[in-house]
């Protein structure tokens, strides 16, 4: 069963025997491939950096604006703590939006992910339609949805929540239906053979099986929502992002740094809590 390539040619064996092991083995073929890949990458990078076709990378502009930038960064390093009380209500709104969006999308995503899993739903066409729609939905970032929804339903937390829900459903259904498919098919077949209806199978076998991975994804989505909920306000969709937009138009980088620190603390705390919950789950 050995591949022909690994069997040395008779001539090479004879030569190796003659020179008594001193010659190194021949170099593997195809060593030019990484260099070719490297060349292609370098070429694309050169094109993207060129002033005509690309994004015009110029150290010149950076050198010219360096003074201005340095002043901003000094400002950034001196947070204006008196601003802190004003950041609390919008930060709470971000958290509320994240919780609501997570709850709503969980309720929508649970039946959909069962529907999209091959082991549970044998109808190929129905499954395919759900997957295609969700792939399309996931291809657009939530901030772009938020920008459009703000124009549709007006400024506030509602378009932000809708944008988050739209994006979350796509993620949860993809990850959870894949988790269901990677599970052992045995128990599902046993339940079916015992004459269980689909509802009974879902209740007794499928859901308990995916429960840990489902909770895992919901926690992950909650983290994502808090993180992107902080910037949704930049397009008018509620939360602390509204404040970020305000301080950035007045170039109040000392206030911006208060907000950034607050976001940092909230995100890292949430990460710690959810990783603690994950450890309990597994």
């Amino acid at each position: 069963m050995t591949a022909p390539a690994s069997v040395p040619a008779p001539a090479a064996t004879a030569k190796a025997a003659a020179s008594a092991s001193a010659t190194p083995p021949p170099r593997p073929a195809g060593r030019w491939k990484p260099w070719l890949a490297f060349g292609v990458i370098a070429l694309i990078t050169a094109v993207t950096l060129s002033p005509q076709l690309g994004i015009a990378f110029s150290l010149d502009a950076i050198a010219r604006n360096w003074q201005n930038g340095a002043a901003k960064i000094v400002q950034l390093l001196q947070p204006d703590w008196s601003f802190f009380p004003r950041t609390i209500p919008p930060m709470l709104e971000t958290l509320e939006m994240a919780v609501i969006a997570t709850a709503v999308s969980t309720l929508i995503a649970l039946p959909l992910s069962l529907w999209a899993a091959r082991l549970i739903n044998p109808h190929r066409v129905g499954r395919g339609i759900v997957r295609v729609i969700l792939n399309i939905v996931r291809a657009v970032p939530e901030l772009l949805y938020a920008a459009i929804l703000v124009a549709m339903v007006g400024v506030g937390a509602l378009p932000g929540i809708l944008a988050l829900v739209l994006f979350n459903v796509g993620i949860i259904v993809k990850l959870v239906s894949e988790a269901i498919e990677s599970n052992d098919a045995g128990p599902l077949e046993a339940a079916r053979a015992a004459g269980g209806t689909q509802a009974q199978i879902n209740r007794a076998v499928a859901l308990p099986d995916v429960w840990p991975s489902f909770v895992n994804q919901v926690l992950y989505v909650l983290e994502l929502n808090v993180r992107s909920g902080t910037v949704l306000g930049l397009v008018g969709a509620g939360g602390i992002g509204l404040l970020i937009d305000a301080v950035r138009t007045y170039f109040r980088y000392d206030q911006l740094s208060v907000i950034i620190l607050e976001v940092l603390v909230v995100v890292i705390l949430l990460e710690l809590v959810s990783s603690a919950i994950r450890k309990r789950l597994v």
Partner: peptide, 28 residues
């Protein structure tokens, strides 16, 4: 690494644009 991951890219861009202005280079 952990701190950078906690800050959304769009906020990083707002900080960087004070040096490079509103150009695609800022985004990159």
């Amino acid at each position: 690494f952990a701190v950078i991951r906690a800050v959304p890219e769009i906020i990083i861009a707002i900080i960087i644009l004070s040096v490079t202005g509103l150009t695609p280079l800022t985004g990159a």
